[in-house]
Design a protein around this nucleic acid. Structure first.
Lengths: 97, 97
DNA sequence: AAAAACCGCAACCTTATGGTTGCATATTAT
DNA sequence: ATAATATGCAACCATAAGGTTGCGGTTTTT
C-alpha cells in the first residue's frame, strides 16, 4: 500500500482520479511527461494494491479509484500514533516514579 | 513520506518505535535479519522524511518517533477521498440529468 | 590501561524499479 | 473497407535502492 503510493507518479494518478473520476489511460497520460506504457505500468501496480480497478468499455479501459484501502491506511496510522502516545505516557510515569 | 513508509523494513521500524519508545540502533537491529548499517541507512531515510529524529546520548544515538508527519498523511488521504466522493456525486448528477 | 560496546564512513555488489521502443490487436469513425 | 484510436505484450536499458563488508573513532566498562 505505502509502496504503491510511494511513487510520485502514482500519487499524482490517484490525485487526478480523485478529482476527475474514472478516466482512460490516454486521459491519464495527458499532462504527464511519460509514455502511455509507463502510465499503464503504474496503473497495474495501483490495481494490484487494490487502490484502483479498471473497467473495459469498448476500445478503452477506464480506471477508477477504490477508496477503501486509503481508509485502511488511515486506521493503521491511527493505531501507530496511539501506541506512540502510550509509550510516551509510560515513559512519563517511569520518570516521575 | 509515502516513499519513506513504503519499505517494509522502515514500516517495521516505525511500528517498533511506536511501541517501544526511543531506542538505540542496536536495539532496533535486534529481531531483524539485517546488519546494523542497513538499519542505520533506513533510519537516515526516515529522519530525512521527518518521521523520526535522533538524539546522541553518550556512545549511543537514540531514535524516536515524530508523529506529526503521520497526521499530515492522514489529512492528505482525507482530502483525496473527499474529492473522490464529490466526483461520484457529480457523476450521479450528470447521469440523472 | 585495556577491552568491549556503539556508532559513522566509504567502497562495493546485486537486483528491483521506472522508463522506452517496437510491434500486434481490437474498436470506432470516415 | 480503411483509417484512426486505444490498448496490450515483450524485450531491453539505465539507474536507484537495499544490503554487506571493512575500518576507524569515541564512550563505557572492567
Amino acid at each position: 500500500m505505502f509502496a504503491a503510493l510511494g511513487d510520485p507518479t502514482r500519487l499524482a494518478l490517484v490525485a487526478k482520479l480523485s478529482r476527475g473520476g474514472a478516466s482512460s489511460i490516454v486521459q491519464l497520460t495527458e499532462g504527464t511527461e511519460l509514455s502511455r506504457q509507463a502510465v499503464t505500468k503504474h496503473l497495474k501496480i495501483l490495481e494490484q494494491a487494490g487502490i484502483v480497478h479498471s473497467v473495459r468499455s469498448g476500445r478503452e479501459s477506464r480506471y477508477e479509484l477504490d477508496p477503501a484501502p486509503l481508509a485502511e491506511v488511515k486506521d493503521y496510522l491511527d493505531r501507530v500514533s496511539a501506541e506512540w502516545d502510550q509509550a510516551l505516557m509510560r515513559l512519563k510515569a517511569f520518570v516521575e516514579e
